[in-house]
Design a protein around this nucleic acid. Structure first.
Lengths: 211, 211
DNA sequence: CAGTAGTCTTACTCGCGAGTAGGTACCAGG
DNA sequence: CCTGGTACCTACTCGCGAGTAAGACTACTG
């Protein structure tokens, strides 16, 4: 991963990108505390003072990583989802987009999910923000469905459970990469839409290919 | 939380308990890296060398905490679940036991879920062990249900999703402590057993009080 | 070609925290 | 009252990592 070519004297914007990429990589592998600024500057192929000059302190750098990756991910999902469709189709497209993103951005996902959630610092804010947006999205989807959950609290907690199920399944997926994204997404779709009760009886939810 | 009475010259077994309790408390609040041995010994009301004499290095201490709390939790669930019952009732009792434990042992839960899962060290083993046991438990429950998921992989991933949903909902619950454990458990039960599809149509799952 | 702005480096300081050396108090049993 | 053992302490060493001082090298601009 180490940058080799020693390409010298690059413009600031480019360097910042390189540094951010390196930081996400290192943070995802080691976690916030265990990651050292020396390691990050090393992976980025620059010296430490550059790092401080461009991205500030370690905490600032981490927060910036979170923000960037969270934005990337929410955009990926927003792009993938299809509004003005039946609730089940909306959920389905959202899940596909989510698992698609995780599959192609494992490091981003690890920084977001594992690292950010544990460090109680100013980062939790960024992360909680994104998670809240995701939960609200799902909660809105549930509420808009006819006789769905009554109270706001109920919808929110169900949405939290669903988001958590997605996160956890994504985590599991990291250990079983042989499965394609679509299959994993479909599985979760079936779980949350049909429920075990129906699955036990052999009733499954079909993707919109039949439409 | 600081131990005041300066009760002196206690037998080793008692001190070890105190130290473990203090360690779980500190680890849960600060995480593995940010927690210092000085802080732990301070909270436990003893000096650092005692800590090292009794519980070994920081890593050993942390691993011991994980093991103890994981065991406590799995025992709580095993005690709460009712085998030889219909699958839905088994799941229901398991969920109740789980949320009951988390509600009364927030610190234990945080150490287990947030801290242990992120530190890639030798702890992950302990934690993964427990999680695997939990997932296997659920997977077995699913497989034993008649026409349930075909492949082993499918059952496992669904179980992982369910366990994750539980973890996530427990996390959400920490921010909404006003809700009683039973309500939260019932909500998850409805989600995973009935699915949104049924919930949207107003079909809910009833706890076994009707039996 | 001097000046100025921006890129980039080596070589430090300094505090924090893991782990330890070397003791002191207290309680057995002889 | 001595002898050993166990509980317990103060006061260190020492490395690692965050953050910085001070300057060098390049490139554009007049």
């Amino acid at each position: 991963m180490r940058t080799e070519g020693r390409a010298k004297r690059l413009p600031r914007a480019v360097r910042e990108r390189q540094i951010m990429d390196a930081a996400v990589d290192v943070f995802s592998r080691l976690g916030f505390h265990a990651a050292s600024m020396d390691e990050i500057s090393d992976v980025a192929g620059i010296s430490k003072p550059m790092l401080y000059a461009y991205l500030g302190s370690k905490e600032e750098l981490f927060a910036t990583c979170i923000r960037r990756e969270a934005t990337r991910m929410m955009e990926a999902i927003a792009t993938g989802v299809e509004p003005d469709q039946e609730p089940d189709v909306q959920l389905w497209s959202g899940l596909r987009a989510f698992f698609g993103f995780v599959g192609e951005n494992r490091a981003s996902w690890m920084v977001l999910h594992r690292q950010a959630s544990t460090q109680g610092g100013p980062f939790a804010v960024e992360l909680t923000d994104m998670r809240t947006r995701a939960v609200s999205l799902v909660a809105a989807l549930l509420t808009q469905s006819t006789k769905a959950p009554a109270t706001k609290l109920e919808a929110e907690s169900l949405a939290a459970a669903l988001v958590g199920a997605g996160e956890s399944l994504a985590e599991w997926w990291l250990d079983h990469p042989e499965e394609p994204a679509g299959v994993v997404a479909a599985r979760l779709m079936n779980l949350v839409w049909m429920g075990f009760g129906d699955l036990v009886d052999g009733n499954v939810w079909h993707p919109p290919s039949r439409r």
